[in-house]
């Protein structure tokens, strides 16, 4: 029960933050990526604002346990593999094309019209298809 309440709270803060920050405005996101056009720096402030509490939170994990039980994530892997590279390139192209990434696509569902719903549906299909490409890339790496 506590896990569910905390997850709902975290999701609510995340959604509210995305909504008020301007990150569901695709013109602002594309404006940030459009460095050769009229550059919009808002996303840099959003990222900076988000990193502050998160960096503090990672500090607080040291020597503690999560409030709702279980354990904290293990230290990050330093392995840079082809899945990370190929996936990030595909994601970046899609992000640039429309200006939506997964968080804002969900947060704006209630006010982003049929366009937001169509994007989210296509994104869900992509997510369901993704394990096939992941396995393919893993096999390729094993054979290389």
């Amino acid at each position: 029960m506590l896990r569910t309440v905390l997850a709902l709270t975290a999701g609510g803060l995340f959604g509210a933050g995305l909504m008020v920050s301007g990150m569901t405005d695709t013109a602002k996101v594309q404006g940030f990526l459009d460095i050769f056009g009229s550059w919009d720096p808002t996303l840099a402030f959003v990222m900076g604002g988000a990193l502050l509490p998160m960096a503090f939170a990672w500090r607080l994990t040291e020597g503690r346990k999560p409030a709702a039980g279980g354990s904290f994530p293990s230290p990050p892997s330093a392995e840079l593999d082809r899945r990370l590279a190929v996936g990030s390139v595909l994601f970046g192209i899609g992000w640039g094309l429309v200006g939506l990434c997964p968080g804002p696509a969900m947060a704006s569902l209630s006010y982003n019209g049929w366009q937001g719903a169509l994007f989210l549906a296509a994104m869900a299909c992509g997510m369901i298809a993704a394990p096939k490409l992941s396995r393919h890339l893993d096999r390729g790496a094993a054979n290389a």
């Binding site: 933050g17 502050l52 939170a57």
Partner: peptide, 19 residues
């Protein structure tokens, strides 16, 4: 942007420290 970013980070902190 900054205020919304803080809320996003706060959400991440709750999910990490809580769950």
């Amino acid at each position: 942007g900054l205020g919304g970013g803080l809320l996003i980070g706060l959400g991440g902190a709750v999910y990490l420290l809580g769950n």
